[in-house]
Amino acid sequence: MSDLLNLRAVWGTRPLLSVGVSVLLQDETGRVLLQRRGDDGRWGTPGGGLNPGEDFLTAAHRELFEETGLRCPDLRLLPLDQGLVSGPDFYHRYPTGHEVYMVGARAHGHLPAAALAGAQPDDSGETLDLRWFPLDALPELSSNTNRASLSVLRARAGLAGLPLQPVPSPPPVGSHLLALRRLVGPRPLFAPGANVLITDDAGRLLLLRHAGTGRWTLPGGSLEPGESFEACARREAHEETGLTVTALEPLALSAGAAYRFTYPHGDVVDYVSVLYRAHGWTGTLTPQPEEVLETGWFGAADLPRPEDLSGALIRDHVGVWRDALAAQQGGQPA
């Protein structure tokens, strides 16, 4: 049983965040491989949810093989400006009544058209048929996630994007992860979210010492259902620092076993996080009193010790900033 279905036992049909990956395969003529789905009979790209501890590319290879029996040697995640999936448009209601907001990434690769002759989907019933389709002659698609993914390929081919279907308004921002916690206890939960690199005029990085861990972290936090990664980054940065960030540039997408984190009180999360760089901000630094013990602006030479940072995710995200700074200065990563 999938991680998401386990949650359904206590959450019911209400919206959940579904962390997954879509696999976009094209043949030598540019046609895209689509599967006719077993749940609604419509067409979509192969793909599915991450297992705990999986990164997106590993999940893409696994889901592709399970749903088609095919392997793609050149499968890669798309650049973040084309590959991220999140936001209110990615609502989906399954025939069972289960509601989700899709969150995740897109992978892309190539196979010759003849490879389809060796396709052998597993016996789960998820795949009823597999076919190559020209991008300008697509069948009825299953969800906005598929429409948006195929619009990425259509844009590359000089074609117009596909219109998205209307969706309900997302629920108001609340405390989705906390509400789940009350029902499931400390067991591991996916925590999709965002962190932000905010720097001052001297180029120093803003870090916050978190009340829950006592360690230094970046501004950021968890998505709410229907929220995009970027909207989450803006909201969390403002809530925790009082600052309004202006332009945001996505730098990295992190997921996998290395990013499991256990809080001092025992709650376990599998972080799925997009790191953004803020290009400008306004306002006065006003830390959130219940979450932030203190703030600090740090240069590369005076960063907190790695063990004083809040886990592998924050260490790696701070490392992205430090290495980029070193590259700008003509030096080597520390």
Rank of each mutant, 00 (worst) to 15 (best):
S169M: 07
H279T: 09
L218R: 03
L189Y: 10
A117M: 06
R31G: 06
A202K: 13
A247P: 07
L128T: 04
A114S: 15
P225A: 08
P88R: 10
P186Q: 07
S124G: 11
V23S: 00
G47H: 10
A211I: 04
A278Q: 07
E66W: 13
W216A: 00
P73S: 12
S310F: 00
E227M: 14
T68Y: 11
E307P: 04
L135K: 04
L180N: 09
R235I: 05
A231N: 06
G53N: 06
S228M: 12
G221C: 04
W281I: 03
G44I: 00
T262R: 15
L5G: 01
S142M: 00
R182E: 11
L189P: 12
V320T: 05
G330Y: 11
D55T: 10
A326H: 14
V10P: 05
D129T: 03
E63W: 15
H176M: 07
L57T: 11
R235G: 06
C72I: 07
V272Y: 01
E249Q: 15
L207I: 03
L64R: 12
D123A: 15
L75P: 14
V245F: 14
G118N: 09
E140T: 09
G299M: 02
L207F: 02
T217F: 02
A258T: 07
L111T: 01
F229I: 07
N51R: 14
D323I: 07
G296D: 12
Q165W: 09
D201Q: 15
L325W: 12
L4V: 04
S143V: 02
L205Y: 06
L50R: 12
A155L: 04
L243K: 05
R37W: 05
L248Q: 12
S143K: 03
L205A: 05
G97C: 10
D39A: 13
E230V: 14
D123H: 15
A258G: 13
D123L: 15
R260Q: 05
S254R: 01
P172N: 08
V173Y: 09
P304C: 01
L150P: 01
A107T: 11
P139T: 02
E290T: 12
A155D: 06
W321L: 06
A258C: 05
A301E: 09
L75M: 13
L16M: 09
D267E: 11
L197W: 13
P289Q: 09
L57W: 14
G30I: 01
L223R: 01
S151T: 10
A327H: 12
E240L: 15
A60C: 15
G220N: 04
P250K: 10
G12T: 02
L138R: 01
V167Q: 11
C232R: 08
L208T: 09
E307H: 11
G283A: 06
R31Q: 15
T295F: 03
A137K: 12
V292S: 03
G193V: 05
D267S: 12
R76P: 08
S18E: 01
F90N: 01
Q165L: 06
Y91S: 15
G220F: 02
D200I: 06
A160N: 09
I314G: 01
L84A: 08
